[in-house]
């Protein structure tokens, strides 16, 4: 008879349960109607089963998003866990869709599910990738835009994990400022 060791069948639990959402820009429907929950997972193996099964961001149509959020937090500014928060935002140029987008997004997911930010990981609410004709965006959302120490630490580590050069700056913006902006740019509360 064959012996199966626990290591061969036990899944590796994650610290958090995560929900992956998909947003499709159908202009005949409302914003919330266009936002769909794909699946939830709480083990490393279930994460990969999902990730290996879905399209990479670079294959999505313009106007689509993926959002990965902790279970119980909706991927919108209005959620109680997000409304005082903000995001580390990375804006990609058009060439980066082929070179960097999928790699950066996977790295972002691995940072989240692996709790890469140590004690500051509790500040993290989720991450979003927006696929847009003018340039794609990836952001990590955190829960409190006043929490400078955690935010800066998360930003520095995130930049390191993405392999960004020291010269490449990324900015952190509050959702309040993003939602009430009049022009096309939002001021950065922090930069790393």
């Amino acid at each position: 008879s064959e012996t199966v060791t626990p290591a061969q069948y036990l899944k590796h639990p994650l610290q958090n349960r995560w929900a992956l959402w998909y947003f499709k820009n159908d202009k005949t429907k409302g914003w919330t109607e266009n936002l769909r929950l794909i699946a939830k997972f709480d083990t490393v193996e279930d994460f990969w089963a999902l990730y290996n099964h879905i399209q990479q961001p670079s294959k999505l149509l313009f106007g689509c998003d993926y959002c990965l959020f902790k279970d119980g937090i909706k991927p919108m500014w209005e959620d109680d866990k997000n409304k005082k928060g903000g995001r580390w935002l990375m804006t990609l140029n058009k060439q980066q869709r082929h070179n960097d987008l999928d790699r950066y997004w996977l790295e972002t997911l691995l940072c989240l599910i692996g709790e890469a930010f140590d004690e500051h990981s509790d500040e993290v609410c989720g991450a979003v990738v927006n696929v847009r004709p003018k340039g794609d965006k990836i952001a990590i959302w955190t829960g409190n835009c006043q929490n400078r120490e955690a935010i800066v630490s998360i930003g520095q580590l995130y930049k390191e994990r993405l392999g960004l050069s020291l010269k490449a700056l990324i900015g952190y913006q509050s959702h309040d400022d993003t939602s009430s902006k009049s022009g096309s740019t939002t001021k950065n509360l922090f930069s790393v």
Binding site: Q8, H12, P13, L14, Q15, V44, E45, W48, N52, E107, L110, I113, G114, E115, A116, D118, E119, S121, R161
Partner: peptide
């Protein structure tokens, strides 16, 4: 309590494990 942390290398190794 303790936090369950996985580094990049470990997570990537799990990608194609049965």
């Amino acid at each position: 309590g303790t936090r369950i942390i996985y580094d990049r290398k470990f997570l990537m190794e799990c990608r194609h494990s049965p």
